[in-house]
Amino acid sequence: MLFLGIFSVLLLTVSAEFCYSDVENACSTNPKSGGLTLNCNAQYGAIDTLQADLQSFVNANIETSFEFLLMSTHFGNYEASRDGFKGLYRKLSDQSWADAIDLIKYITRRGGKMDLNQLPRFKKSVKDSKILELTEMNSLAKALDSEKQLAKEALRIHNQAQHHTSQDADVAHYIEDHFTESLSERVRDLAGYSNDFKNLLSERDASVSVFLFDEYLKKTL
């Protein structure tokens, strides 16, 4: 009997968080607290604690996307005139932008909100000025660092989602599916380009090597 009592009390406190009880209240003849149905939302798991991290990650992707866009337009001008680099950075910019939009949709799918004022978590290094008119080699290095930073942040969020008390496998899976794999590929590609390109620069005059590498880059897009 005592057990039943405790059980029903438990049931009562828990049922306070259900959409059904909100609806029952709202549909009753005398609804309490304005008949709000606050529990009729899409939230469950650890989305409320992970939301801020995800929001920051969206903004990190948006910031990275704009940086790549600036790098792309720089290589598109007549003085740099490197169509391959221009295309590569435009592709990376579009990827990060699409990733940001998709992640926003995921946050809202889980009943969360997007906050564009939630700043990216990682600090840019001191050397990172806003000037993105870089040489070909420096731009590859910067691009590699940026993608690595995103990849590391994806791993951190994945780790948080997995080790949270109410392990949110859905967030972890989403990050794996949409971020970790694609980011590791981007990191690998950029690391490869950096090393190949570095070897070409040891020549006395690398002008033609850079031209050929740019042409190669254009073909890989």
Binding site: I101, I104, T108, K113, M114, D115, L116, N117
Partner: peptide
């Protein structure tokens, strides 16, 4: 563009309306 992005999301704000 950023304002339209905020519109899709429908959120609260400090410097842009969300």
């Amino acid at each position: 563009a950023m304002k339209y992005l905020a519109m899709i999301l429908n959120n609260n704000d400090t410097n842009i309306r969300q």
